[in-house]
């Protein structure tokens, strides 16, 4: 199912604007974000918490709570069709079927009063024509696939009876049971123990190779990005600040924010060296100043940075884009 017309990306997000109307004021959680995902690509979305990466993912699957949230503009083209202009019942046929999602908190993301097996068959009931027996068998097959021993027993258990890692495996089984074209993983390992994190990432990678689904991996953990994705998008305060090939980003980061992020990763074998951190904190998204959102924390900030919001420009190759005043006049 992964083949699309040559050249056209599988998912193309153009100028997406998702705003929240809160009582304190307007929050531009996602402001003019554009990117695309082609089939079997693994795309990483990085940024600090509150930078709009999860909201971007929620916008794609129509999960923004309305009100206070609203998608104010842009297009989300899936196989050339704008999801924002699609009827909701048709959109629901895409969610869970062609595009599915794994959430951050496996503790709360599963329904506590339903057997996990039923939570998986629910997806199949919605999107396939299988009868109830086949659905159950398929669910068990899927549970086995994500590496759970005793799948029959597990299918009949409730979320509270499973460990965090097991629950996340169930979430993955649920997301992949319909062979989606795109899997969105929203911080899938943040809530887990470090050892489990590696297992879950390995599982996502393996499943990706097997189904050749495209994956959008959302995380604040650069280590995860480095070993998992092909392409990286760095977000800051609702905007894309840099995007490019994973190697390029890690070897030649251009944006001061990306540079700061990379410097704050501890490196094995360099003991005694003080870890650098980015000074200051993320600006309040309400009443953002006119200039570059990062200017107040940027070591290279010039006067121009406080007045003029920078454009996203290409540097070096056509794959590498940066939003910074330093790279154009």
């Amino acid at each position: 199912m992964a083949d699309t017309a040559a050249g056209a990306p599988l998912l193309d997000v153009r100028g997406l604007k998702t705003y929240f109307h809160t009582e304190e004021g307007l929050v531009r959680a996602v402001d003019d974000v554009s990117f695309s995902v082609s089939s079997s690509e693994v795309l990483g979305l990085v940024g600090e918490s509150g930078c709009g990466k999860s909201v971007t993912a929620f916008s794609i699957l129509d999960l923004i709570p309305v009100p206070p949230g609203r998608i104010e503009g842009g297009e989300i083209l899936f196989r050339g069709k704008d999801l924002l202009k699609t009827e909701s019942h048709e959109r629901r046929r895409i969610s869970g079927n062609h595009i599915s999602m794994i959430f951050q908190e496996p503790m709360t993301a599963l329904n506590p009063v339903m057997m996990v097996g039923s939570q998986i068959t629910e997806v199949l009931k919605l999107h396939t024509l299988l009868d109830s027996h086949d659905r159950w068998e398929k669910a068990i097959e899927m549970i086995a696939k994500v590496g759970i021993s005793e799948p029959r027993k597990t299918a009949k258990s409730y979320p509270h009876e499973l460990s965090g890692g097991m629950r996340q495996r169930i979430m993955i089984a649920m997301a992949l049971v319909c062979d989606p074209d795109i899997l969105i993983a929203d911080e899938p390992t943040t809530a887990l123990d470090v050892t489990i994190q590696a297992q879950i990432l390995e599982l996502i990678k393996a499943m990706q190779r097997e189904t050749s689904a495209a994956v959008i991996l959302i995380t604040h953990d650069l280590a995860v990005i480095a070993e998992t994705v092909n392409r990286v998008i760095v977000m800051y305060a609702g905007k894309i600040v840099e995007s490019g090939d994973v190697k390029t980003i890690f070897t030649e980061p251009k944006h001061p924010y990306t540079q700061g992020l990379l410097k704050s990763i501890p490196v094995l074998g360099e003991p005694g060296k003080l870890l650098e951190s980015i000074k200051g904190r993320v600006p309040n998204l309400i009443d953002l100043p006119p200039g570059c959102h990062f200017a107040n924390r940027c070591p290279f900030a010039r006067e121009r940075c406080f007045e003029e919001h920078p454009r996203l420009v290409e540097v070096d190759s056509d794959e590498h884009e940066v939003r910074c005043n330093l790279y154009y006049d």
């Binding site: 629901r92 869970g96 079927n97 959430f103 709360t108 599963l110 329904n111 919605l126």
Partner: peptide, 15 residues
Amino acid sequence: AHKDYVRTAKAKGLG
């Protein structure tokens, strides 16, 4: 209705 599992259910495509 504001709990996480409801969001999961929505992401599955349930009405």
